[in-house]
């Protein structure tokens, strides 16, 4: 008896979201099947990788991650250009880490300046990500939304605590937002409903489910993303049918095993390759769980993951 393929019936699809400036829109989403289950559905827009740029020279990056950017860390615009010119970045993610009140606490005005410079230096879609401090992010991202009107930036993280202010600002000044909830599918759905009620159109919403690195809580994020896709694609949960963005690099590179030297931990092997693999493997697992946009750091890790996206899509 020949094996009859047990297919799953999908009744939903992920929404297609246009990113970047109108002239050169890039689209994410559109999936009609689980990630890379291409024998029973389609992924019209392969997942994208956004390369990280920091608003100030990173202080706590291990050598392996810093080395490729050592010549540009002082200048975010040059850094952004290098990502595009040398590494073929298809998107960028500006991390406003220095705005954190617990770090340098740089003022919102300065963040606006940096954002403008970076946006002017590149053509690809730009994600602008706050430090994670609710009050400061609300102030900073709001000002950026206004000052960069019409740029269609992707602003994040937008949690429940700031969705009103930032949802309204992105609506008024035409940006896309990354709705952020802590690894909980019900909270994610709820926030998407609230943002929709504000009048933010669906084509301006992405979901940030909150991610963690390999060995540091990844399993929770992996499963929440799988559940998210299941609800969106097989249970007609319309308010979860949004592309997922995974801000993973900073989670990966902060952990001890991504930083420790070979002398201190000989059994962990080469620190560069280890860091790269920790980042690439985190990314690959999150892709399998449903990631549409991955925010990544190391050029080697990015190249590896791009290769896998191609292989997984290849006919």
């Amino acid at each position: 008896m020949a094996f009859e393929i047990p297919k799953i019936s999908y009744n939903g699809a992920i929404k297609e979201i246009p990113l970047g400036k109108e002239a050169n829109h890039m689209i994410v989403g559109g999936e009609t099947c689980y990630p890379f289950y291409l024998f029973e559905g389609s992924m019209p827009h392969p997942p994208k990788i956004a390369m990280e740029v920091y608003d100030a020279p990173p202080e706590d990056w291990p050598q392996a991650a810093l080395e490729p950017f050592a010549d540009v860390v002082q200048d975010p615009a040059a850094w952004a250009q290098k990502c595009v010119a040398s590494y073929g970045a298809e998107m960028l993610a500006l991390q406003l880490a220095s705005t954190d009140p617990n770090a340098q606490n740089t003022p919102a005005e300065q963040a606006v300046e940096v954002t403008k410079k970076v946006a002017a230096a590149i053509e690809v879609p730009l994600i602008v990500w706050g430090s994670g401090n609710l009050e400061k992010d609300t102030e900073v991202l709001k000002m950026i939304a206004e000052e960069c009107a019409g740029e269609n930036l992707i602003l994040g993280p937008i949690p429940e605590g700031s969705y009103k202010a930032l949802g309204a600002a992105s609506l008024a000044y035409q940006h896309t937002i990354a709705a952020s909830t802590p690894i909980d599918i019900n909270l994610a759905k709820q926030l998407n409903i609230l943002i929709g009620n504000l009048g933010v159109p669906d084509k301006c919403i992405l979901v940030d489910p909150t991610v963690a690195g390999l060995g540091y809580g990844l399993e929770y994020c992996y499963s929440v993303m799988e559940r998210d896709r299941m609800a969106a694609l097989t249970q007609e949960d319309e308010r979860l049918q949004f592309p997922i963005v995974c801000n993973l690099a900073k989670e990966v590179w902060k952990v001890k095993e991504a930083r420790i030297s070979e002398e201190e931990a000989p059994l962990l092997g080469d620190p560069l390759k280890r860091g790269v693999l920790l980042e690439a493997m985190t990314a690959l697992l999150l892709l399998l769980a449903g990631g549409d946009i991955l925010i990544m750091r190391h050029p080697d890790a990015i190249q590896l993951v791009r290769g896998f996206i191609n292989d997984l899509m290849a006919n």
């Binding site: 390999l214 060995g215 092997g269 080469d270 390759k273 280890r274 693999l277 920790l278 493997m281 697992l285």
Partner: peptide
């Protein structure tokens, strides 16, 4: 296997 290839896989 090398430490840097096995360790991440074991974590996964």
């Amino acid at each position: 296997i090398q430490g840097h290839t096995l360790f991440p896989l074991l974590l996964a």
